[in-house]
Amino acid sequence: MRTRRDLILILSLLAIGLLLFLLLRLTAREGERVAVILENTTVAEYPLNVDGEFPLLGGKNTLVIENGEAYIKDSQCPDHTCERTGRISKVRERIVCLPHRLTVKVV
């Protein structure tokens, strides 16, 4: 009985997650620029159609824009999650560096 409820719980959570994921994916469109957000204030914006390398937080992270996509190259944080997030280009996609309280978001 409880095993059955477990299964229902697991399947419904997966279904909700998948549904929300698809919803976000299907409504995504290509973005025009990335916003660099520190805590909750936007400190800089870069257009995605201009290639370049931009040091953030005095060089603690390096933002790279290349072929309309943005990614973080070097981060002096302990987990490097932001580097491994990879490239973003669609509206609402984001790279988060929790140790530096930094978010790079496509707008």
Binding site: L13, I16, G17, L19, L20, F21, E39, L98
Partner: peptide, 23 residues
């Protein structure tokens, strides 16, 4: 994260975290 970063935008990760947490 919502409290510390001050933005509801972190909820963007909810779908992935739901699936990952379940598995």
């Amino acid at each position: 994260a919502w409290i510390l970063l001050g933005t509801a935008g972190v909820m963007y990760y909810l779908p992935v975290l739901l699936i990952a947490g379940t598995v």
